[in-house]
Simulated scan of single mutants.
Amino acid sequence: MPEQQKGITVIGAGVVGLSTGIKLQEKGYQVTIVAEIWPTDSDRPGPHYTSRWAGGHHCTVAGPDDLRQQKMDSETFKVFWEMSEPGHPAEKCFIRAPQYEYYFEDVAYPPGLESMPDFKLVPKSNLLPGAVFGVSFTGISFDPTMYLSYLQQRFIAAGGQLVHGSVQHIKQVVEGGGAIFEGKSPAPPAAVIVCAGIGARSLGGVEDKTVTSARGQTVILHAPWVRFGSTCRKMENGRVSYVIPRHNGNLVLGGTRINDDWYPLPREETKIAIMETALAYWPEIAPPPARKDRTPTIEDLLPIIVEEGVGFRPHRKEGIRIEAQWVAVNGFSAPVVFNYGHGSSGFESSWGSASMAIQLMEEVLETAAATAA
């Protein structure tokens, strides 16, 4: 690969952009990531930096006919499992814990779950009230803030350039690369990969209006006595109840998934509903003294709240977009590969979608080189 053709620019520094950048590095490319927000920015990221607010577990929901999503999720789980091994630099970002998935309709569970470690059916005597069936396995959950920081540090340590920049149109990057956002001489890249998340809705040259916010709201407790994860796979008033443990002893209670909801702050009534439902299903989330001689209430949870979160998941009607098109401007041209629209599966599919996007990029570049020859 000629040296001048190895430079790739990625737009976006969420989990998808960082994972894509690292995979590009592993294949020998020189990578610049341009992003308005970095994981380690001192200011608290808002809801549009979605990755920061993820609940944080890998639990595929890819249906039996969605082979592409299955492949993405499977590859990503293998990477997470390796990262969660003792001694790995990212080990403390993760926790392996028993995961229980409960279904309230007689539907098939995602086929990808059968390949999870220690997979088995939950005995009927252990089902939550109203559940038709359940499955359990050893799952992986993670702390998004810690994991994103790890990815950023890994990317930079491998020679990557991370640039603060608010990209208004992809033509800016095609013509000048990331250097122009630092006031430097233009450095046109060989290719651009767009990992803009919710920003794909407004980014010039993309403006995908099928991308909208699937607003998520969570409550995070400090509950180190809880070392299991669980999800009730039913939607009630835009809410899906779950508990997700983290390595540091925090516990995520969720959550909501409401399309085209753009309210940026936690709603008090939603917070109360999340806690009430979680406590009804999993009373063991309350502090042990509160459960000793009585039924715990949400008042027992209030003192252990760490924070509340709101994030705008980048929901796309047709699912993740992995496509390519050539963009030309002022004598410069480059393939632009799109890798966005992950909805609530950004972490779960991050490494797999990065592989697919990079494979597409290389196919387009190879075709162009062969045509030029």
Rank of each mutant, 00 (worst) to 15 (best):
L302M: 11
G341Y: 06
I180V: 12
E363F: 01
S115Q: 15
I274M: 03
R246F: 01
L265I: 04
I305P: 07
Q168R: 10
H48K: 12
V16R: 02
A190Y: 04
G63A: 12
G159R: 08
T20I: 00
G55A: 14
L18S: 11
T50C: 15
G63P: 05
A278T: 06
V211N: 09
Q99A: 12
Q4N: 08
S141E: 11
Q359L: 00
Q161E: 09
R246W: 05
F332G: 05
T270E: 04
A191Q: 06
G346C: 09
G56C: 08
S141V: 04
G55C: 07
S355M: 01
V16D: 10
A324C: 06
W53L: 09
Y102G: 15
P264I: 00
E308W: 06
P47T: 00
W81A: 13
D118G: 11
T218H: 08
R96C: 11
L221F: 12
Y102E: 13
F142P: 00
A90Y: 14
M356K: 03
Q30V: 14
G17K: 01
G346H: 11
K317C: 01
M72F: 14
T50S: 13
G255S: 05
D300S: 12
G176C: 13
K171H: 04
G112L: 05
S115A: 15
M235R: 14
I180G: 01
E82L: 14
K292V: 05
I244Y: 03
E101R: 15
R321M: 07
R96G: 05
I244N: 04
G46H: 08
D260H: 02
T367D: 14
I37E: 15
Q4M: 03
F80R: 08
F312L: 01
E366L: 12
V252I: 06
K23T: 00
K124C: 12
Y29S: 11
K209Y: 11
S345H: 02
G309N: 09
P186Y: 12
Q359C: 02
G331I: 10
I285F: 04
I220C: 02
P264Y: 00
D260K: 08
Y109S: 14
A357P: 01
I11Y: 02
E276S: 06
G17I: 05
E318S: 03
G199F: 12
